[in-house]
Design a protein around this nucleic acid. Structure first.
Length: 806
DNA sequence: TTGCGATCCCTTTTT
DNA sequence: GGGATCGCAA
């Protein structure tokens, strides 16, 4: 029963919200009650519909705090909140209407719900095993914890690589299988061991009062599913649920969404849950995303309305036609018409380059040629983007852009926090916030070196493992650990004292204590000795990289200062008392009862924010630079000018995704996502030779290039127009031209198959003996050959001077 | 205990 | 190409 305001009084505001929408968009905004599935094609104004819908609900009198919108990145969440605010109060002076509106990622929401309701769940008999002041372990921490678990179980990290172990655990968590569930299902040797590792890893996390990314979802789902009190509390608060990028939700997220939505009023069509997505843009199956969530939405809510947004407002007709032709190659797909009423536009260009350096230079030139001139003709740098499948491809591109004087930024939100000096500084801060955090204690206890070496620390580790206490507690009682030198014990005591000088022995009170977060960060950097040691290093090496470390540390202080400035405990939606969900009390929500020293609360909020940053969060449209990012990070964005590099077999589609047809279709969707980000211009490039991890290899152009319609794609081969002195390979060959496929019974391919059948042994003048793995057609026949000494190479038969041995 | 150099291995995408 | 690890010298 949403409270409705008198229609006449808000008519103008509502008109304003609706008047520039297309009929289906309007329908999606107006369908506020009951379940709704919006199938939104790329560029169909999805974000606009979501923000309008929220604004519309609020203007109808629905209290903002009863609306929950879930997005994929923090960036998207922030932008959405901002847009709703501007829409409701264009002059920006009145933001009260949108107070309490929750726009968040699933992970951030999970963190908040667990902190807030963990205790309530416990009263309800649901134990999560962590305290509300838990630490969030990010990837490096997870790996460290897994590694320690592998070793503590007497297994080797060669047979049980932490990455794969973590991958298996993560997969289980996304399917909501806890360690016990997993163990019960484990039949074979491998999964039985994983089950043990899973259990050990969880034990380690809980002992450190830590959760990992997947726990944020799994524990939230568990809490909502098993605790009636928590579930009802949340359902009571959030009457309207919106989920963006629904095609990329995994089982855990699906469960959270279902639990939050509930069943809705008995007499209605179902809960007020609106999901928005596009199966053609599902690119996260490897993270457990389940495309069936979107396909089965109608099954779950039989009375759900379905609205398709097909009209594209973003791209030119040729770009759209090319993207459409590409995605039509996917067989497991519900076709959706993509159309635009726009006319004109440049075709897509596809260029074959010599190698990755040529490619990078060509892209840099292309971007420059479209850059704004003095007369304002052309595009601003910030309107351009370069996409790639793997992060490793960015380096060469960066070099070329730097050389060409093109300003650029890389969308790697985590990059800053991955730096050694930042990890160390944050490690200290995390220990200040949570001394049980063994991974962080282990990371910083001897950084900078203070005489607590691996041997001594190992002794303490053993002793604490036996006693079942944290590493921190072990250091506190170092004198009781056997086999430690007095020197080591003193060093440990000194370390403990250092940390406690910042925490005020846990009280966060007293004269000596830092008053502000920035001050605390600064003190930690200085008093830990980090600053001094990096300064010393910079002075001795005189290298730019070391000077940069110092800059980064001061940037961390600035970031803390900025966070502090923006931090407002009252704006935290979870600080609102949920009893205020009485519609009459919307204007005066009371503060909740989270009690802790303000500085500690702020520190924890800061650390949480820092842990949950995503790469895509680093995209700053205000910067005057070209943006470089992975195709995954590009989801949801748009740019007038888009370059995509590395359109090669093995890269896009990626070689790790060659296993199944499903994987291949996901790669195709990834390519589709890239192309559909573009508004005006698209250039695709591939390199004939590419050096990957130091090995220079002949490549094959991506099949996706061939799948693009020729009437909208200009293909050119410029691989010979590049003279690179470092290049000692010299064969030619280009994109397959003429009739595509080449699978007919005659022609060069058939001839080659006769002369050099698969499996035959050959000798190459340079690479030695090898075996033919496969043959591929085109204007020039290529053979994939596995050489005994140099591995698998793809060679153009015509030039390879192969000698048949068998 | 620390620091350096050789060697080995790996590499998709991310909250 | 580069990060992690290991062995060895100081």
């Amino acid at each position: 029963m949403p409270p409705r305001t008198d229609a006449t009084t808000t008519m103008t505001a509502m008109d304003h919200l609706l008047d520039d929408l297309t009929p289906p968009q309007k329908e999606a905004v107006l369908h506020t009650e009951g379940p709704l599935l919006v199938l939104a094609a790329a560029g169909s104004g999805k974000t606009r519909v979501i923000t309008r819908r929220i604004a519309y609900l609020i203007s109808c009198g629905v209290p903002a705090w009863s609306i929950l919108a879930l997005t994929f990145t923090n960036k998207a969440a922030g932008e959405m909140r901002e847009r709703v605010q501007t829409m409701l109060a264009p002059d920006g002076e009145e933001t009260r209407q949108s107070r309490g509106l929750t726009v968040s990622t699933f992970h951030a929401l999970g963190a908040r719900l667990i902190r807030r309701y963990g205790e309530l769940a416990a009263h309800d008999g649901v134990q999560l095993g962590i305290k509300s002041d838990f630490t969030i372990y990010t990837s490096p921490d997870q790996l460290a914890a897994v590694k320690a678990t592998v070793l503590s179980l007497g297994l080797s990290t060669t047979n049980w690589p932490p990455r794969s172990v973590l991958g298996a655990i993560s997969k289980a968590k996304n399917e909501l299988l806890d360690a016990d569930d997993y163990a019960m299902r484990a039949g074979d040797f491998f999964s039985k061991n994983i089950a043990k590792l899973y259990a050990g890893y969880q034990k380690r996390l809980r002992a450190a009062n830590a959760v990992d990314f997947d726990d944020l979802l799994m524990l939230t789902a568990k809490m909502l599913r098993e605790s009636k009190a928590v579930r009802e509390e949340c359902q009571r608060r959030w009457q309207y649920l919106l989920i963006d990028e629904y095609q990329d939700t995994n089982h855990a997220q699906f469960t959270i969404a279902s639990m939050l939505a509930g069943e809705g009023p008995a007499e209605g069509d179902g809960p007020n849950v609106c999901v928005v997505g596009d199966p053609d843009q599902a690119i996260y199956s490897w993270r457990g995303a389940d495309i069936s969530n979107i396909l089965e939405f109608e099954e779950r809510y039989p009375k759900a309305a379905v609205i398709t947004l097909g009209e594209n407002f973003r791209s030119t007709a040729p770009i759209l036609a090319a993207a459409d032709a590409l995605i039509r190659h996917n067989k497991k797909r519900k076709h959706k018409d993509l159309f635009t009423s726009r006319e004109g536009g440049e075709p897509i260009t596809a260029v074959l380059c010599r190698d990755e350096r040529h490619e990078a230079q060509l892209v840099a030139d292309w971007l420059r040629s479209h850059a704004e001139d003095e007369d304002g003709v052309g595009y601003a740098w910030r309107e351009m983007a370069v996409f790639y499948r793997t992060n490793a491809l960015s380096r060469v591109m960066e070099d070329a852009l730097r050389e060409a004087g093109v300003p650029y930024v890389i969308a790697r939100g985590t990059a800053f926090f991955d730096r050694e000096e930042i990890k160390h500084a944050l490690g200290y801060l995390r220990v200040v916030a949570n001394q049980a955090d063994d991974v962080s204690v282990g990371r910083i206890v001897n950084v900078p070196t203070r005489g607590i070496g691996a041997t001594s620390l190992g002794r303490v580790r053993e002793a604490t493992a036996e006693a079942g206490i944290s590493l921190w507690e072990g250091l506190q009682q170092a004198e009781r650990v056997e086999g430690l030198s007095t020197r080591a014990v003193n060093a440990m005591k000194g370390f403990v004292e250092l940390i406690e000088s910042w925490t005020g022995h846990g009280s966060f009170l007293g004269k000596e204590m830092a008053g502000s977060l920035a001050e605390l960060v600064e003190r930690v950097i200085r008093e830990s000795g980090l600053e001094k040691s990096y300064k010393h290093q910079a002075e001795t090496t005189k290298s730019e990289a070391d000077a940069e470390r110092l800059d980064n540390l001061s940037e961390l202080v600035s970031s803390a200062a900025q966070f502090e400035e923006e931090y407002d405990p009252a704006s935290d939606p979870f600080a609102f008392d949920l009893d205020a969900t009485d519609p009459g009390g919307t204007d005066s929500p009371t503060l909740g009862t989270i009690e802790m020293p303000p500085l500690l609360a702020m520190l924890r909020a800061y650390l949480e924010k820092v842990s949950l940053v995503a790469d895509a969060d680093a995209v700053d449209p205000a910067s005057g630079s070209v943006t470089l990012m992975t195709l995954h990070a590009a989801k949801g964005l748009e740019f007038p000018v888009v370059a995509m590099i590395g359109l090669e077999e093995g890269l896009l589609p990626h070689s790790r995704a060659h296993a199944s047809e499903d994987d291949l279709e996901e790669e195709r969707r990834l390519c589709f996502v890239g192309i559909t980000r573009a508004m005006r211009l698209v250039q695709l490039t591939s390199a004939k030779y590419r050096t990957i991890r130091g090995m220079r290899d002949r490549t094959i152009p991506s099949r996706f290039i061939e799948e693009l319609p020729r009437e909208h794609t200009l293909v050119s081969d410029q691989s010979d127009a590049w003279d690179d002195p470092h290049d000692d390979f010299n064969d030619t060959g280009g994109y397959p031209s003429g009739s595509a496929g080449g699978s007919s019974g005659s022609g060069p391919l058939a001839k080659a198959k006769q002369e050099l059948p698969i499996g035959s042994r050959v000798r190459h003048p340079q690479f030695g003996a090898g075996e033919v793995l496969s043959l591929e057609g085109g204007s020039s026949v290529r053979a994939k050959i596995k050489f005994r000494d140099v591995g698998v190479k793809t060679l153009v038969l015509e030039y390879a001077r192969l000698q048949r041995l068998s």
